Structure formats: structure tokens, C-alpha cells
Simulated assay, not measured.
Amino acid sequence: MKIIVACDSFKGCMTSQQANEAIAKGIQKANPNHEIYCSSMADGGEGTAQVLGQCLHATKIDVKTLDAYGKEIMTYYFITKDNTAILDVASCIGLSMVEKDKRNPFIANSRGVGIMMKDAMKKGCKKMVIGLGGSSTNDGGMGLLNEFGIEFYNKHMEPCKANPYGLKNMVYINKKKFIKPNIEITVACDVNIHLLGEKGTTHFFGKQKGFYRNQMSEVDCWMKNYRDCMQHTFHVDLDSFEGGGCAGGIGACLMGVFDAKRMPGAQLVASMSNLEQHIQSSDLVITGEGQTDLQTEYGKVPFEVLNIAKKYNVPTICLSGALGIGYQKLYEHGMAGIFSSSDRAMTFQVAIDKGAEKLENLAYSIIHLMDHLQGDI
């Protein structure tokens, strides 16, 4: 049996490559006769630049920037042979960079992304691919715009900080220092949500970033004020862009102000890795992610892999670290099986530490069962 393994990264636990290798190891233990092909995947979130950089044989560039809370950090991006920069926001303002109980979206900002963009431009890049998933910010891209010279002021003509309170308090935007860069930007989005509303960025991602349920409607109103101010200054509606809600509004900022083009992240990675070519000649596809839930069907890796496999009637199963609310929807789209590698009650840290081992054991059990049912053992 030819088996394709194409997982997303398991945030804060395993890279895509590490998750694929754990599953492959489990398959080989169950039956060494199976042919296995691993394809690293990403959907615009954590690890996107790494995966695309490997696919395109790009050069890794180290850069000093700021995290979401203003702390200096070293991170990296990639530059291809044709001077295209590939970076993801999660590498500097990533959600997994901060422990869950220490996340504070009310003070987090996106300035670090702007610093990385400017570094790539100084190195001569005229094209840029930016993965937007996995951010810890909800500032609408204010911090990024600050880095390019755009200033925000409250009613007292005092500068607004780049955070949700700034969204609330701004009444005036000064763009006199802003010079639109001559660069072609593609944003890789993992979901197709807009900036505002009950299905917008604050409501959709707010809980994982640290907002309480009773805060989200108010913060969404602040984001609407930001949209209105930006529309008055730049004559563009940031809420009109599909995918604009990605990365706490950075997507809308890049599409509205920098004329960035949007492409579903998982589709972008799949096309560059020739995943479809490998799937069409396979017997089984295994995909996975850190947590499978309602968000998965909005364009995350398992959903994109499933859609490719369906074209060739190849059965697909999903192995994830955890199963959240609404994961069953994937069955309606044709997923053959959905499994969690968490085999007992455990702390989050134990789940992280034992992630690869648990995933390997799960893959072993599933392949052993399939072989038994098919009479191969």
C-alpha cells in the first residue's frame, strides 16, 4: 500500500516534518512493507516559511525584530533565487510563543512583522509571500503600519498605541510619512474570514488569543472604528476583503493598504510541493494538525489535503493532537476517519512532551487494524 503523509505542524509541539516522521515511524512498525511518502505542509500559519523555503531551496535569513509584546528577538525568513521573501507572522508574533495563561491581546501588536518586511526590502526583494496564520495580535495591523510611517491619534491629538485600545481611541490617521513600497505581496491565509462581525477576526480567533467571551463584541466595535478611520484616510473598506480577518486584521491591512493578493495558504504549499501528483497514485492519505475543530473546514491543511484526495477517490484519515468542537463536520466532507492522539487524561505540557510518541502509537494502531481487516497480517 502506498501511503501519503501530509500533516500541518502541531503548534508548539512538532513541526510538519516531525509530525510526518512520527506517523511514518508508526506505519513502518506496523508493517515495513508499506510505501510511505511524506510531504511537509502548512496553511499560512506556523512553519509556512520553513516549508516553502525548503520546497524552493531558498536561503535562510536571520533577522532581529520584536515579538508581540515589544521584546527584541531573533527569528528568520527566506529569500528565493528570484529575490522573493518568504516569511510568516507566527515567527515573530506567534501565538505559540507565549504560554496560554500569559497571553494578553490588549497589549500585543504587529510591529515586528513590519520590521521583517523592511529588512527583506532592504535586501532587494521585490516580491514577498507572507503567511498570516498563528498570530497572537488583534491590532488590525496598526503596529505594522506604524513601522511604515503611518501614525494614529486620539481626540486629544496624542499618539495611539498599536493595540485594541488604539483601535478604540483613534480619531485621526496621519499618512504623510507613508510611502507605499514598490513590492508585490501575496498573503497566504488559513481561513477566509472578514475583519468584522460575529464571524470576524475578534469573535473567530479571540478566545485562543486571550479575550473573554464577554469582551469580544466590544473589541469588535473598536475594530469597526479602526475600519471607519482607515476608510476615511485610505478610501478602502478593510472589511471587504475575504481573509482580511487573518492575523488579527493584518490580512486586511496588507490587502487594503499594500494591495496584497490573497491565496489560500494550504493550496499554495500543496501546489509548490507537487502534493497532488503524489496523492493521485496513492492508496491512503494521512493528514493531521494540532487540533481539529470547526476552524478546520475553513481552509486548514487537513481540509485542503482531503479535497485533493477526493478528486482521486483516495481515502483520507486525520490524526490530530486534540479534537475540538465541530470536528465531526469533516465527516460530511468525506473524511474517512478522525482520531486524537491523546489516549488518556493529561496536562497540556505532558501532551506537548509526549506528542510525537503518542502520534506514532496512534499511526501504528490504525495501520495494524487496517492490515488486519484486509488480511495482510
Rank of each mutant, 00 (worst) to 15 (best):
F211T: 06
C160N: 02
E158K: 15
I250G: 09
I185W: 05
Y165P: 00
R213F: 07
M128W: 04
N174S: 10
D139S: 08
K177F: 04
S136H: 07
K126E: 14
L167E: 07
I179N: 09
S136V: 15
M157H: 11
V219N: 02
N174C: 07
A247N: 08
M216L: 14
G197H: 07
G131F: 09
C246W: 08
G206E: 14
E198W: 00
K155P: 00
W222H: 14
F148R: 06
F178Y: 06
M223L: 14
K180I: 03
F234W: 03
M121C: 05
R227G: 00
P181Q: 07
V129A: 03
C160P: 00
M170Y: 01
N146T: 03
Q215K: 10
M170P: 00
L167P: 00
D237K: 11
F148A: 07
I150G: 03
Y226L: 12
V236F: 10
G249V: 14
C221D: 13
V171D: 07
M170V: 04
A247E: 09
Y226K: 02
P164L: 01
N174R: 04
K155G: 11
G149V: 05
L132R: 09
E147N: 13
P181I: 03
G149A: 05
K224L: 14
G248C: 10
M157E: 11
D228N: 15
H203C: 07
M230Q: 00
K168M: 13
H194D: 02
S135D: 10
G210E: 06
G134S: 10
M157L: 12
M170E: 03
N174H: 05
E147S: 05
T233M: 03
E198F: 01
G200Y: 04
P159Y: 02
Y153W: 02
F211K: 04
G244I: 02
E184N: 14
S240T: 08
C253V: 13
E242L: 12
K177G: 02
V171Y: 02
K207Q: 15
K180L: 03
C246Y: 04
Y165S: 07
N182M: 03
K177M: 11
N169E: 12
Y212S: 11
Q215A: 03
A247W: 02
E184P: 00
G133Y: 04
D228T: 03
I130C: 14
A247Y: 02
L132D: 10
Y172R: 08
S217P: 00
S135Y: 05
G251V: 06
E184L: 04
N169D: 09
E184G: 00
H203R: 13
V129C: 06
Y212N: 15
Y226G: 03
D139H: 08
H194A: 02
K161P: 00
E158D: 10
Q231Y: 10
P181Y: 05
N192P: 01
G124K: 13
E151Q: 14
M128F: 08
H235A: 11
T186V: 15
G143W: 14
N182E: 11
G210P: 11
P181W: 06
F234N: 07
A162E: 07
M157S: 13
T186C: 10
M142Y: 10
Y212K: 12
L144V: 09
M170C: 05
Q231F: 07
